[in-house]
Amino acid sequence: MSGLTGVSRAVAVTRRPGLPYPLTLALCVALLGGAVTAGIAAGSISLPADQVWGILLHRVHPALAEPVWSPVRETIVMNVRLPRVLLCGVIGAGLSVCGMALQALVRNPLADPMLLGVSSGASVGAVSVMVFGLTFLGPFSLPVAAFAGALAALVAVYLLARSGGRMTTVRLVLAGVAMAEVLSAVASFLVVTSDDPHRTQSAVRWMLGGLAGTTWTMVWVPAAAVLAGTAVLLGVSRPLNLLLAGEEAAASLGLDVHRFRASLFVLVAMVIGTVVAVSGSIGFVGLIMPHVVRLLVGADHRRALPATALLGAAFLIMADLVARTLITPEEVPVGIITALVGGPFFLWLMRRRS
């Protein structure tokens, strides 16, 4: 009975008064559409919003829009800005849903791929490939190395944070921050000791997080990983909800907590590793978006995960827009923009939790 009571309590806190869920989801879709439009339209050559959508519709089917624009503008939209905006959306959605999953798995609202050292672990793996020129798996070398680093970091933080079979917020945050700092130092050491200036410069810019030079070939693998990962997380929404009631209550209802947690750690590491391999380390997206979504729709993962993916995609598209237009013609790494937003949010969250 105690397990059922705990689950009932957990389900109760997932319900939030406010807008109906379909309307909230529609607003998230509209926000994402506005972010995509702004991301494609803004730049050194500004494009009207109607022309942006005209070009996109014309590519879908020529009869949908009359081509009244120059070929140069169509090239800018289709080959330069659209792949970058889509990759931003994919990365933002992936980081957000992984952040929400981690917060449920470790039952800690401060959990985040960056704060738990997952992004730093992926960075060590990816930087090792870039600095040493490792190509043991061809084009898959970078994603595989990033995945291995992310998984190793996540498992290490989890083991360090547990004491006597229990895990507290303080131990988790301290273990995550310590692991992130150590792994960031390792990545920096690999960079500064490299004797190839070109690889060093590429690694440094990559570590700051950025999406300059995005091409269509860079979009498909992260998109497939994020879509697959999000679909799996939606499929296990009920076990994720059960964890809100605690490990004992979830186990009493038939959930193998340790096996479930281990399998989802691998899934999260796969998604984060694939994303970090193309974007570099981008922090705080996985911390901010889950909390915003819980305020809007509650903590039920069946409802929260789709909204988190949509808002995360819109947020990173807008952050990237700021990054490339703030000091034109120079471009600020998008990881700096998300840190400037996420840092104060994290401090507010810690103060609110205390």
Rank of each mutant, 00 (worst) to 15 (best):
P83A: 03
P71D: 10
V221E: 11
V106E: 02
G298K: 06
L4Q: 13
W216V: 02
F346W: 07
C98F: 04
A224R: 07
R162D: 05
P48C: 08
V144S: 07
M179E: 00
G92W: 01
C88E: 14
V52F: 02
F345D: 10
V131H: 02
R352H: 11
G99K: 00
P113G: 02
I317E: 01
P71L: 01
M114H: 15
A111V: 04
V80W: 14
L287S: 03
E66L: 13
P197T: 03
P197K: 06
T214H: 00
F136N: 12
L56R: 04
G54N: 06
S141P: 05
I40V: 15
L142F: 01
A223I: 10
A225N: 05
A339P: 01
T14M: 14
V257H: 04
V257M: 05
F136K: 08
A309K: 06
A42F: 14
A161W: 07
A26T: 06
V257R: 00
A161S: 13
R199H: 13
G273I: 09
M179N: 09
A323T: 05
F315K: 03
L321N: 12
T217C: 00
P329S: 05
M207T: 08
L267S: 11
T308G: 14
L57W: 12
P306W: 02
L253D: 00
M318V: 14
L154R: 09
R162M: 15
V292N: 08
P222I: 03
R259V: 05
V257E: 07
M100R: 09
T37C: 08
H58A: 08
